[in-house]
């Protein structure tokens, strides 16, 4: 697996995949995609990079422990539900705002935050498992 081609291509592939995963995450509300599938793509990206360039490099690049990313995702998702408290609506009620940035209307909502949470949970969990499994290969 440690071919020169693979090692050279892997960083670009990973970068592209991570970018694509964010794209998939954000378009998910209206077209195929979403947090879950986005998270799977991101996790695959990190797994590829781990195989090609070593787990230690991926861990450094990620900065946070993958499980911490996962936990943060769960926190965001739960927090998105609790946002309903000040508005006195039931738990998990979707709340939307449509602010204008530079003349473009941007839809922000608690489901978006929730989906980001799902994305982070899936990314974090799968990445941490994949990296932990790859780590042993290095030994």
């Amino acid at each position: 697996m440690n071919t020169l081609i693979f090692r050279t291509m892997a960083p670009y592939l990973t970068a592209l995949m991570v970018l694509f995963s964010v794209f998939v995450l954000l378009r998910g509300h209206n077209m195929p995609g979403g947090g879950f599938i986005g998270g799977l793509i991101a996790a695959s990206a990190f797994a590829i990079q781990g195989i090609a360039g070593g787990v230690a490099a991926v861990r450094r690049a990620l900065w946070f422990h993958p499980m911490a990313i996962s936990a943060a995702g769960l926190f965001f998702a739960g927090f998105a539900g609790l946002m309903s408290i000040p508005f006195e609506v039931p738990f998990m009620t979707a709340l939307w705002v449509f602010p204008k940035f530079f003349g473009t209307e941007v839809a922000l909502s608690t489901p978006l935050l929730f989906d980001i949470g799902v994305y982070l949970v899936v990314t974090g969990s799968i990445t941490s498992i994949a990296l932990a499994l790859e780590e042993r290969e290095d030994l």
Binding site: H29, P32, F91, A94, S109, F114, D115, S125
Partner: peptide, 28 residues
């Protein structure tokens, strides 16, 4: 209601978001 065309995704993150919350907790 949910401002989304993708029914599957709307179900996951909005209509049945509490279920999903439980599921991602299981994932973690």
């Amino acid at each position: 209601i949910a401002h989304g065309h993708n029914v599957v995704n709307v179900i996951i993150v909005d209509f049945r978001a509490t279920d999903t919350l439980g599921e991602i907790a299981v994932v973690v």
